[in-house]
Design a binder for these strands. Structure first.
Lengths: 139, 139
DNA sequence: ATGAGTTTGCAACTTTGTTGCAAAATAAAA
DNA sequence: TTTTATTTTGCAACAAAGTTGCAAACTCAT
Protein backbone atom coordinates (compact mmCIF):
# COMPACT_ATOMS: atom_id res chain seq x y z
CA UNK A 1 0.00 0.00 0.00
CA UNK A 2 1.58 3.22 -1.19
CA UNK A 3 1.22 6.27 0.97
CA UNK A 4 0.68 9.61 -0.69
CA UNK A 5 4.02 11.07 -1.51
CA UNK A 6 3.15 14.74 -1.16
CA UNK A 7 1.64 13.99 2.26
CA UNK A 8 4.83 12.39 3.45
CA UNK A 9 6.95 15.30 2.30
CA UNK A 10 4.69 17.93 3.84
CA UNK A 11 4.38 15.97 7.06
CA UNK A 12 8.15 16.23 7.29
CA UNK A 13 8.19 19.96 6.49
CA UNK A 14 9.93 19.45 3.17
CA UNK A 15 9.18 21.43 0.02
CA UNK A 16 7.64 19.24 -2.64
CA UNK A 17 10.10 19.03 -5.52
CA UNK A 18 10.47 16.78 -8.53
CA UNK A 19 13.55 15.01 -7.27
CA UNK A 20 12.10 14.28 -3.87
CA UNK A 21 8.85 12.97 -5.29
CA UNK A 22 10.62 10.81 -7.84
CA UNK A 23 13.17 9.36 -5.43
CA UNK A 24 10.58 8.64 -2.76
CA UNK A 25 8.52 6.93 -5.42
CA UNK A 26 11.44 4.67 -6.31
CA UNK A 27 11.68 3.52 -2.74
CA UNK A 28 7.97 2.79 -2.59
CA UNK A 29 8.17 0.77 -5.78
CA UNK A 30 10.99 -1.48 -4.65
CA UNK A 31 10.71 -4.22 -2.09
CA UNK A 32 14.38 -4.04 -1.21
CA UNK A 33 16.98 -1.39 -0.73
CA UNK A 34 18.50 1.16 -3.10
CA UNK A 35 22.02 2.48 -3.43
CA UNK A 36 22.89 5.93 -4.67
CA UNK A 37 24.05 4.35 -7.92
CA UNK A 38 20.71 2.60 -8.44
CA UNK A 39 18.87 5.88 -8.15
CA UNK A 40 21.30 7.64 -10.43
CA UNK A 41 20.87 4.92 -13.03
CA UNK A 42 17.09 4.89 -12.80
CA UNK A 43 16.74 8.63 -13.07
CA UNK A 44 19.20 9.12 -15.92
CA UNK A 45 20.15 12.74 -16.39
CA UNK A 46 16.98 13.94 -14.73
CA UNK A 47 18.72 15.40 -11.74
CA UNK A 48 22.23 16.07 -10.61
CA UNK A 49 24.33 13.60 -8.67
CA UNK A 50 24.62 16.12 -5.88
CA UNK A 51 20.85 16.48 -5.64
CA UNK A 52 20.52 12.75 -5.11
CA UNK A 53 23.10 12.81 -2.34
CA UNK A 54 21.35 15.71 -0.66
CA UNK A 55 17.91 14.20 -1.04
CA UNK A 56 19.00 10.92 0.50
CA UNK A 57 20.67 12.80 3.33
CA UNK A 58 17.52 14.80 3.98
CA UNK A 59 15.35 11.68 3.96
CA UNK A 60 17.63 9.98 6.45
CA UNK A 61 17.56 13.02 8.74
CA UNK A 62 13.78 13.12 8.62
CA UNK A 63 13.54 9.39 9.30
CA UNK A 64 11.87 8.63 5.96
CA UNK A 65 14.60 6.19 4.98
CA UNK A 66 17.45 4.56 6.85
CA UNK A 67 20.89 3.29 5.89
CA UNK A 68 21.55 -0.41 5.84
CA UNK A 69 24.81 -2.00 6.99
CA UNK A 70 26.24 -4.33 4.36
CA UNK A 71 29.20 -6.72 4.33
CA UNK A 72 30.56 -5.29 1.10
CA UNK A 73 30.22 -1.85 2.65
CA UNK A 74 28.20 -0.36 -0.14
CA UNK A 75 25.82 2.30 1.09
CA UNK A 76 22.21 1.22 0.79
CA UNK A 77 18.99 2.85 1.90
CA UNK A 78 15.51 1.54 2.59
CA UNK A 79 12.16 3.02 3.54
CA UNK A 80 11.42 3.24 7.21
CA UNK A 81 8.28 1.48 8.34
CA UNK A 82 5.83 3.25 10.65
CA UNK A 83 7.56 1.68 13.60
CA UNK A 84 10.71 3.74 13.16
CA UNK A 85 9.21 7.00 11.99
CA UNK A 86 10.14 9.01 15.05
CA UNK A 87 13.48 10.25 13.76
CA UNK A 88 15.83 9.13 16.49
CA UNK A 89 14.51 5.67 17.04
CA UNK A 90 15.42 2.54 18.90
CA UNK A 91 14.85 0.01 16.26
CA UNK A 92 15.79 -3.33 14.81
CA UNK A 93 16.17 -4.40 11.21
CA UNK A 94 16.88 -7.66 9.46
CA UNK A 95 18.26 -7.52 5.93
CA UNK A 96 19.28 -10.19 3.49
CA UNK A 97 21.99 -9.53 0.92
CA UNK A 98 22.44 -11.90 -1.99
CA UNK A 99 26.09 -12.77 -2.60
CA UNK A 100 25.32 -13.44 -6.24
CA UNK A 101 23.11 -10.64 -7.54
CA UNK A 102 23.69 -8.13 -4.75
CA UNK A 103 20.02 -7.46 -4.15
CA UNK A 104 19.10 -6.44 -0.64
CA UNK A 105 15.83 -7.58 0.88
CA UNK A 106 14.22 -6.13 3.98
CA UNK A 107 12.88 -8.85 6.22
CA UNK A 108 10.80 -6.68 8.46
CA UNK A 109 8.52 -9.33 9.81
CA UNK A 110 11.27 -11.30 11.42
CA UNK A 111 11.89 -10.62 15.07
CA UNK A 112 15.41 -10.27 16.39
CA UNK A 113 16.15 -11.94 19.68
CA UNK A 114 17.74 -9.49 22.10
CA UNK A 115 21.51 -9.66 22.27
CA UNK A 116 23.03 -9.76 25.74
CA UNK A 117 25.73 -7.08 25.94
CA UNK A 118 28.67 -6.89 28.35
CA UNK A 119 28.50 -4.59 31.38
CA UNK A 120 28.56 -0.90 30.55
CA UNK A 121 27.36 -1.15 26.99
CA UNK A 122 24.02 0.38 26.02
CA UNK A 123 22.36 -0.49 22.72
CA UNK A 124 20.12 1.81 20.70
CA UNK A 125 19.81 -0.18 17.50
CA UNK A 126 20.42 -3.71 16.33
CA UNK A 127 20.88 -4.67 12.69
CA UNK A 128 21.10 -8.21 11.43
CA UNK A 129 22.77 -8.70 8.07
CA UNK A 130 22.20 -12.14 6.60
CA UNK A 131 24.26 -13.03 3.55
CA UNK A 132 23.65 -15.89 1.19
CA UNK A 133 21.79 -16.81 -1.97
CA UNK A 134 18.37 -15.35 -2.59
CA UNK A 135 15.27 -17.02 -3.96
CA UNK A 136 15.85 -15.74 -7.49
CA UNK A 137 19.44 -16.92 -7.72
CA UNK A 138 18.62 -20.26 -6.11
CA UNK A 139 16.26 -21.32 -8.90
CA UNK B 1 47.41 -15.42 23.10
CA UNK B 2 49.20 -14.26 19.98
CA UNK B 3 49.86 -16.78 17.26
CA UNK B 4 53.16 -16.64 15.47
CA UNK B 5 52.86 -14.19 12.62
CA UNK B 6 55.29 -15.86 10.24
CA UNK B 7 53.49 -19.14 10.76
CA UNK B 8 50.16 -17.65 9.78
CA UNK B 9 51.56 -16.10 6.64
CA UNK B 10 53.35 -19.25 5.54
CA UNK B 11 50.34 -21.41 6.32
CA UNK B 12 48.45 -19.23 3.86
CA UNK B 13 51.17 -19.44 1.21
CA UNK B 14 52.04 -15.77 1.50
CA UNK B 15 55.54 -14.37 1.30
CA UNK B 16 56.65 -12.88 4.58
CA UNK B 17 57.06 -9.16 4.06
CA UNK B 18 57.37 -6.17 6.36
CA UNK B 19 53.97 -4.77 5.58
CA UNK B 20 52.16 -8.04 6.07
CA UNK B 21 53.89 -8.77 9.36
CA UNK B 22 53.29 -5.26 10.67
CA UNK B 23 49.64 -5.10 9.64
CA UNK B 24 48.86 -8.56 10.98
CA UNK B 25 50.53 -7.53 14.21
CA UNK B 26 48.25 -4.50 14.48
CA UNK B 27 45.21 -6.72 14.25
CA UNK B 28 46.56 -9.03 16.94
CA UNK B 29 47.23 -6.09 19.22
CA UNK B 30 43.76 -4.61 19.01
CA UNK B 31 40.67 -6.05 20.60
CA UNK B 32 38.40 -4.40 18.09
CA UNK B 33 38.36 -3.72 14.40
CA UNK B 34 40.59 -1.62 12.19
CA UNK B 35 39.83 0.58 9.22
CA UNK B 36 42.22 1.27 6.39
CA UNK B 37 42.70 4.77 7.80
CA UNK B 38 43.65 3.41 11.24
CA UNK B 39 46.37 1.29 9.73
CA UNK B 40 47.63 4.14 7.58
CA UNK B 41 47.79 6.37 10.63
CA UNK B 42 49.55 3.81 12.81
CA UNK B 43 52.14 2.96 10.22
CA UNK B 44 52.96 6.52 9.21
CA UNK B 45 54.97 6.67 6.00
CA UNK B 46 56.24 3.15 6.47
CA UNK B 47 54.37 1.75 3.52
CA UNK B 48 52.32 3.00 0.68
CA UNK B 49 48.56 3.46 0.80
CA UNK B 50 48.22 1.02 -2.07
CA UNK B 51 50.18 -1.63 -0.23
CA UNK B 52 47.78 -1.41 2.67
CA UNK B 53 44.81 -1.84 0.36
CA UNK B 54 46.39 -4.84 -1.27
CA UNK B 55 47.46 -6.42 1.99
CA UNK B 56 43.98 -6.12 3.45
CA UNK B 57 42.51 -7.57 0.28
CA UNK B 58 44.91 -10.51 0.39
CA UNK B 59 44.14 -11.17 4.05
CA UNK B 60 40.42 -11.18 3.35
CA UNK B 61 40.87 -13.60 0.45
CA UNK B 62 42.92 -15.95 2.62
CA UNK B 63 40.40 -15.76 5.42
CA UNK B 64 42.83 -14.20 7.87
CA UNK B 65 40.60 -11.18 8.42
CA UNK B 66 37.00 -10.39 7.52
CA UNK B 67 35.10 -7.21 6.75
CA UNK B 68 32.57 -5.92 9.21
CA UNK B 69 29.26 -4.39 8.22
CA UNK B 70 28.73 -1.00 9.86
CA UNK B 71 25.81 1.41 9.93
CA UNK B 72 27.95 4.34 8.89
CA UNK B 73 29.26 2.20 6.05
CA UNK B 74 32.87 2.70 6.87
CA UNK B 75 34.97 -0.29 5.90
CA UNK B 76 36.35 -2.12 8.93
CA UNK B 77 38.27 -5.34 9.27
CA UNK B 78 38.81 -7.79 12.11
CA UNK B 79 40.82 -10.94 12.67
CA UNK B 80 39.05 -14.18 11.97
CA UNK B 81 38.96 -16.60 14.86
CA UNK B 82 39.90 -20.25 14.34
CA UNK B 83 36.28 -21.05 13.71
CA UNK B 84 36.18 -19.22 10.42
CA UNK B 85 39.64 -19.94 9.13
CA UNK B 86 38.54 -22.11 6.22
CA UNK B 87 38.34 -19.33 3.67
CA UNK B 88 34.78 -19.64 2.49
CA UNK B 89 33.09 -20.10 5.81
CA UNK B 90 29.65 -20.27 7.28
CA UNK B 91 30.03 -18.02 10.19
CA UNK B 92 28.41 -15.60 12.55
CA UNK B 93 29.72 -12.41 14.08
CA UNK B 94 28.42 -9.90 16.58
CA UNK B 95 29.93 -6.43 16.56
CA UNK B 96 29.25 -3.37 18.63
CA UNK B 97 29.81 0.11 17.21
CA UNK B 98 29.91 3.10 19.53
CA UNK B 99 27.90 6.04 18.19
CA UNK B 100 30.09 8.41 20.16
CA UNK B 101 33.72 7.38 19.68
CA UNK B 102 33.25 5.11 16.67
CA UNK B 103 35.16 2.21 18.16
CA UNK B 104 34.13 -1.22 16.99
CA UNK B 105 34.18 -4.15 19.40
CA UNK B 106 34.02 -7.79 18.42
CA UNK B 107 31.70 -9.69 20.70
CA UNK B 108 32.72 -13.15 19.68
CA UNK B 109 31.49 -15.01 22.67
CA UNK B 110 27.88 -14.06 22.14
CA UNK B 111 25.79 -16.58 20.29
CA UNK B 112 23.41 -15.47 17.58
CA UNK B 113 20.03 -17.12 17.52
CA UNK B 114 19.30 -18.51 14.08
CA UNK B 115 17.15 -16.27 11.90
CA UNK B 116 14.24 -17.95 10.15
CA UNK B 117 14.41 -17.04 6.45
CA UNK B 118 11.60 -17.10 3.88
CA UNK B 119 11.32 -20.04 1.45
CA UNK B 120 14.08 -20.21 -1.15
CA UNK B 121 16.66 -18.18 0.74
CA UNK B 122 19.88 -19.82 1.87
CA UNK B 123 22.14 -18.15 4.41
CA UNK B 124 25.91 -18.52 4.57
CA UNK B 125 26.73 -15.82 7.09
CA UNK B 126 24.94 -13.77 9.69
CA UNK B 127 26.28 -10.52 11.08
CA UNK B 128 24.75 -8.65 13.96
CA UNK B 129 25.60 -4.97 14.23
CA UNK B 130 24.68 -3.45 17.56
CA UNK B 131 24.93 0.33 17.82
CA UNK B 132 24.94 2.34 20.98
CA UNK B 133 27.21 3.76 23.63
CA UNK B 134 30.22 1.77 24.73
CA UNK B 135 31.62 1.23 28.21
CA UNK B 136 34.26 3.93 27.84
CA UNK B 137 31.86 6.62 26.67
CA UNK B 138 29.27 5.65 29.26
CA UNK B 139 31.52 6.46 32.21
C1' DA C 1 74.73 -16.43 -4.79
C1' DT C 2 71.56 -16.63 -8.55
C1' DG C 3 67.25 -16.52 -10.89
C1' DA C 4 62.14 -17.08 -11.00
C1' DG C 5 58.29 -15.35 -8.98
C1' DT C 6 56.04 -12.21 -5.83
C1' DT C 7 55.34 -7.84 -3.71
C1' DT C 8 56.04 -2.93 -3.37
C1' DG C 9 55.92 2.04 -4.52
C1' DC C 10 54.93 5.41 -7.70
C1' DA C 11 52.01 7.79 -10.82
C1' DA C 12 47.96 8.24 -12.95
C1' DC C 13 43.29 7.44 -12.86
C1' DT C 14 38.32 6.35 -11.47
C1' DT C 15 34.73 6.46 -8.34
C1' DT C 16 32.37 8.34 -4.46
C1' DG C 17 31.10 11.97 -1.71
C1' DT C 18 31.28 17.15 -0.19
C1' DT C 19 31.05 22.37 -0.36
C1' DG C 20 30.07 27.21 -1.99
C1' DC C 21 27.40 29.88 -4.65
C1' DA C 22 24.38 31.81 -8.18
C1' DA C 23 20.09 30.62 -10.56
C1' DA C 24 15.72 28.40 -10.33
C1' DA C 25 11.83 26.62 -7.98
C1' DT C 26 8.68 26.51 -4.01
C1' DA C 27 5.88 28.47 -0.40
C1' DA C 28 3.95 32.16 1.91
C1' DA C 29 2.21 36.93 2.00
C1' DA C 30 0.08 40.85 -0.03
C1' DT D 1 -2.39 36.80 -8.99
C1' DT D 2 1.70 39.03 -8.20
C1' DT D 3 5.43 39.83 -5.15
C1' DT D 4 8.71 38.52 -1.74
C1' DA D 5 11.24 35.39 1.35
C1' DT D 6 12.95 30.89 1.74
C1' DT D 7 14.41 26.55 0.05
C1' DT D 8 16.32 23.67 -3.32
C1' DT D 9 18.93 22.73 -7.43
C1' DG D 10 22.84 22.47 -10.69
C1' DC D 11 27.33 23.64 -11.68
C1' DA D 12 32.08 23.73 -10.74
C1' DA D 13 35.61 22.77 -8.02
C1' DC D 14 37.36 20.02 -4.61
C1' DA D 15 38.45 16.09 -1.25
C1' DA D 16 38.54 11.40 -0.05
C1' DA D 17 38.60 6.52 -1.12
C1' DG D 18 39.91 2.96 -3.93
C1' DT D 19 42.05 0.79 -8.38
C1' DT D 20 45.44 -0.33 -12.10
C1' DG D 21 49.88 -0.80 -14.78
C1' DC D 22 54.48 -1.14 -14.50
C1' DA D 23 59.35 -0.92 -13.25
C1' DA D 24 62.21 -1.61 -9.21
C1' DA D 25 62.82 -4.10 -4.97
C1' DC D 26 62.27 -7.95 -2.36
C1' DT D 27 61.38 -13.08 -1.07
C1' DC D 28 62.26 -17.66 -1.52
C1' DA D 29 63.86 -21.89 -3.41
C1' DT D 30 67.63 -23.94 -5.73
Amino acid sequence: MIENINEILKKNQLSVTDSRRKILEMFQHTSGALAHADIEKQSGTLFDRVTIYRTLQTFVEKGIIHTIPTIDNSVKYALCKDACQAGHHHDNHVHFMCDECGTTYCLNNISIPQVQLPEGFRSTQTDVVVSGICKNCND
